[in-house]
Computed example of a mutant assay.
Amino acid sequence: MGNGTQLGRVRGLGAGGGAIVHHWWLQRVTAVGSLILVLWFVISLVRLPSLDYASAVMWVRQPIVAVPLCLLIVSVFWHFRLGVQVMLEDYLHGSKRVIAMLALNFYTVSLAAMALFSVLKVALSAAAN
């Protein structure tokens, strides 16, 4: 086995052209971001006076809450997609992999969009009297 081209050795890129390292870093960054945001989410929920519907709606309507909630949704779904992508690439081959990746992308984007829409609908809705 060779070490790749001379240019590749100089740049420090392997056979994947740095894509594997990029994917690995994205998984770590989204994991840390999700961990921080989940801790914020749990602490915020514990600090609420009650967990009834009215309190939750008033809590989500605050911009200081709605923005981190949207970031949490994006981070968790992105991390989920990256992890499942690695699993699919390792265990599926040929057309099955392509179909599974398309299904994964559709599933992830549609669920993330529904979650973001739900948060934004509550956050941007007018206060009901």
Results as ranks from 00 to 15, higher is better:
G2S: 15
N3H: 15
N3I: 03
G4W: 07
G4N: 06
T5P: 02
Q6N: 14
Q6E: 15
Q6W: 10
R9T: 09
R9A: 13
V10G: 01
V10M: 12
R11D: 06
L13E: 10
G14I: 08
G14S: 03
A15R: 10
G16S: 14
G16Q: 05
G17Y: 06
G17M: 03
G17S: 07
G18I: 07
G18T: 09
G18H: 10
I20C: 07
V21L: 13
H23C: 03
W25G: 03
L26G: 02
Q27N: 09
Q27H: 11
R28G: 06
V29R: 15
A31V: 07
A31E: 13
V32K: 10
S34G: 15
L37V: 10
V38W: 14
L39P: 00
F41Q: 13
V42L: 14
I43N: 05
L45F: 14
L45D: 03
V46E: 04
V46R: 08
S50W: 01
S50I: 00
S50A: 14
S50D: 07
D52P: 06
A54C: 07
S55A: 11
A56P: 00
A56Q: 10
V57R: 08
V57A: 07
V57F: 04
M58V: 03
W59P: 02
I64Y: 12
I64F: 05
V65N: 13
V65A: 11
V67R: 12
V67A: 14
V67S: 09
P68N: 09
L69A: 01
C70G: 02
C70E: 06
L71H: 04
I73W: 00
V76K: 07
V76Q: 11
F77I: 02
W78P: 00
W78F: 13
W78Y: 14
H79L: 12
F80D: 01
F80Q: 09
F80P: 02
L82N: 05
L82E: 12
L82F: 05
Q85F: 05
V86H: 08
M87I: 14
L88W: 06
L88P: 00
E89Y: 12
E89G: 06
E89H: 08
E89V: 00
Y91A: 00
Y91P: 00
L92V: 02
L92F: 09
G94N: 04
G94T: 01
S95L: 04
K96H: 12
R97H: 03
V98Q: 13
V98P: 02
A100S: 00
A100E: 02
L102F: 11
A103S: 10
A103W: 01
A103C: 14
L104C: 09
L104Y: 04
N105Q: 09
F106E: 09
V109A: 15
S110W: 12
S110D: 06
M114C: 15
M114K: 01
F117N: 07
S118W: 12
S118C: 12
K121P: 00
V122W: 02
V122S: 02
S125E: 13
S125G: 14
A127Y: 10
A128G: 07
A128H: 09
A128D: 03
N129P: 15
